[in-house]
Amino acid sequence: MKPRCAISRWTWVLACCAGALAPIGNCAAAERAPAYIAIPSGSFASTLSNPSDNNSPVRVERFALRETPVTNGEFLSFVNAHPEWRRDRIPATFADASYLHHWASPSTPGPGQDDRPVISVSWFAAQAYCEAEQARLPTWYEWEYVAAASKTSPDARRDASWRAEILRWYGRTSEAPPATVGGTANFYGVKNMHGLVWEWVDDFNALLISADSRNQGDPDKLKFCGAGAISLQDRENYAVLMRVALLSSLQGADTTNNLGFRCARTLPDAK
């Protein structure tokens, strides 16, 4: 789990003397292990319908999800350990020109940024971060499953006031940096699923809706090989629709100001 910390004491001292911060940074981060919350398995009706399956409920297997989105401070540790992911070194294939543009320098987020969610990160960067933490990005279904919860209910999507509260976030300007992570946990114990930042998912490029979202049921089967674009159920759940819209507008190297991420881990079967 933590191979980097299995280093002899001698080399520890030498590392300190040589002023090599990276191993220390890594080990320190490993010491402050980020909180992962176990999410029980379940079934739910996804907003993305399953046409070949008559829109039946989707099953999500038990998995662990990070309690909060990854912060600038945590991302800094990663970038220090893997400098090929610094914004002045990253190849264009993996991130666009706006990658981490809000950081004071390629190696410092700047004052007050440590506990704010990292934004302007590409999907590739998010993937690499999660891999470095022996984790991965959540799938869309996993994300949607946990996001359906309010403080008291695992599925609050029918609750008009809960939906209205989420919609309110879209009605606010976004020029200031996002607020710090934390706050009220939802039913599962996870925080900031709404109201803070958009979040990457592992299969962002599986959201096969057409760029013109009015073409639901458009029989252009050739374009998507057989089944056509997926349809969006529950079109009144605008909060989710907007997430799908945003993720489907992006390529893997794209970054945008309100987009961050959190990691997930597959858990061994409970039984």
């Binding site: 057409s210 760029a211 013109d212 009015r214 945003l246 507008s249 100001n257």
Partner: peptide, 15 residues
């Protein structure tokens, strides 16, 4: 043209 241009102009913030 398809979507009146909508199909070809789907743009994320900062793009």
């Amino acid at each position: 043209g398809p979507g009146g241009g909508a199909a070809s102009s789907f743009t994320a913030p900062g793009h």
